[in-house]
Each structure stands twice: as structure tokens, then as C-alpha cells.
């Protein structure tokens, strides 16, 4: 159902683009995300947000420290965690139909494809089930990616700037849809975003990261209940506070 996430003293460095040295992106970083919590990571470009997400997704390994993602079923028993990821770009198989793109993820998670059509209808793509992704707009493609992330019944949902490539109107509509998918509070999530207002609208907790190597310089708890509105006072207040902290 949901995952318990811990980063314990994590170091991560990459070869420097110039000079032949290394760039230390993370150094002795520790953080905890409790089951059912949606945490937003906010910070300047290149501060290490996506590296944290890649470590959680298993796409990178830490140089030192531990990354722990523990899954938990409805009875509270431990299980291997299932991941749902929404990337910055939708990363769809252009040669597979919209339905197939989502069904492949469902089958790979051992869930069968029974809920695929409903999942796509839930994100407003009921009329596009047999379409190829190349026929869809950017917003529609990202909705396919959201349906794919949620069809796998994820313990942990990772969202890597999922709306940054979209126009603001489409992004706003998708944020509302994402919030609806989060209403039952049954899964853990990490949202990487540049957008403080998006973080305040969607997250339970916001971690503001400083410059490299990344460290948590601010932490904000969002107390507003869901469903929220992007115009809620607390969302505005937090937005202003985060921007002031980043400035």
C-alpha cells in the first residue's frame, strides 16, 4: 500500500564535466518519508533533487550510506516496494497504443490489465485508448504517464517535475487530477519541482534543498486538508515563504 523511505548518510558524486574531477552532489544526506506522506523537494536547478529521485528509483546507487524503501501491504506486512514514476518527459512507447503503454506496466507489476481502461478514463483519456501517443498533445501524453504510474498500485510514487514541460493551464488541470488520485492518502510520494506553489498545493511536507552538495535548508509542513485549491491561503503563504527562503 505505501512505502517507508529513508536516506541515511548518502553520498553521491558524478564525474565533473570539466577538469576531470568529481562533483559531489549529495554528501551525508539523511531524510525520512513516512508511509502515506507526499514530500516535495524544492530547490535550484542542479542541486541534486533528481539525483535523490534516481536513487529512490534504483536508477543510481549511492557512493556511501543507505537508501531504504520498504513496502508494506494493507495488513502492515513488509513486501518488496512497487514504484510508480512520472518522469519530466512522459517516456511512452510511441509504437504502442495508449492502452498498451499502461497495460504493459500493469502486467509487469503482476496486476493484469483489467483496470487499464478505467485508469485512462480517470485521467480523461477514455476516447484515446487505441490511439498512438504520437497523436496526443503534451498534456495528454503526460496524463498517460500519470495513469501508468498509478495503475501499478505503487507503494511509492516518484514525480520528477511532471508538469514543467507543459503550459500553465494544462499543468494546473493535471495538478488537480493528481491531487484527486492522492485523496485516499494510501501511498507515499516524492515530488521534485521548481515550482513552490505546486509543492504547497500537492505536498504534505516541503523540503527546500540548498546548493551542492544538497542539504535540507528549510522544512515546511502543509496543514491544509485535501482537496485543496491552488488559491488556498496556506498555499499562497507557503509559496511566498519558500520563495523568500530560496532568494
Amino acid at each position: 500500500m505505501s512505502a517507508h523511505v529513508r536516506l541515511e548518510g548518502v553520498d553521491k558524486a558524478f564525474p565533473a564535466r570539466r577538469g576531470g574531477g568529481v562533483e559531489q552532489v549529495l554528501q551525508d544526506l539523511s531524510l525520512e518519508i513516512r508511509p502515506g506522506e507526499l514530500v516535495a523537494l524544492v530547490g535550484a536547478s542542479g542541486c541534486g533533487k533528481t539525483t535523490i529521485l534516481n536513487l529512490l528509483a534504483g536508477l543510481e546507487r549511492p557512493d556511501a550510506g543507505r537508501v531504504v524503501v520498504e513496502g508494506e501491504d494493507e495488513g502492515g506486512a513488509a513486501r518488496a516496494p512497487r514504484l510508480g514514476v512520472v518522469f519530466q518527459q512522459p517516456r511512452l512507447l510511441d509504437w504502442a497504443t495508449v492502452r498498451d503503454n499502461v497495460a504493459l506496466a500493469a502486467r509487469s507489476a503482476g496486476l493484469g490489465a483489467d483496470g487499464v481502461d478505467d485508469a485512462l478514463r480517470d485521467v480523461g483519456l477514455g476516447d484515446h485508448l487505441d490511439a498512438f501517443p504520437t497523436t496526443l498533445s503534451g498534456g495528454q501524453r503526460q496524463r498517460v504517464a500519470i495513469a501508468r504510474a498509478f495503475i501499478v498500485d505503487p507503494d511509492l510514487v516518484l514525480l520528477d517535475e511532471p508538469f514543467s514541460a507543459l503550459d500553465e493551464l494544462t499543468a494546473r488541470r493535471l495538478r488537480l487530477q493528481l491531487q484527486r488520485l492522492w485523496l485516499d492518502g494510501s501511498r507515499t510520494g516524492v515530488l521534485v519541482t521548481h515550482n513552490p506553489q505546486e509543492a504547497a498545493f500537492l505536498a504534505d511536507r516541503i523540503l527546500v534543498l540548498g546548493r551542492r552538495p544538497a542539504e535540507i535548508v528549510e522544512e515546511h509542513v502543509v496543514r491544509a486538508r485535501r482537496p485543496r485549491s491552488p488559491e488556498d491561503d496556506e498555499v499562497f503563504r507557503l509559496h511566498a515563504s519558500i520563495v523568500a527562503g530560496l532568494a
Binding site: A106, D114, G115, R180, D184, R187
Partner: peptide, 9 residues
């Protein structure tokens, strides 16, 4: 199947 279990909207 999570997405199908969520309320349609």
C-alpha cells in the same frame, strides 16, 4: 488496481 479503485471524476 489502484487507479480503477479511485473515484472516477
Amino acid at each position: 488496481p489502484t487507479a480503477s479503485a479511485g473515484a472516477s471524476f
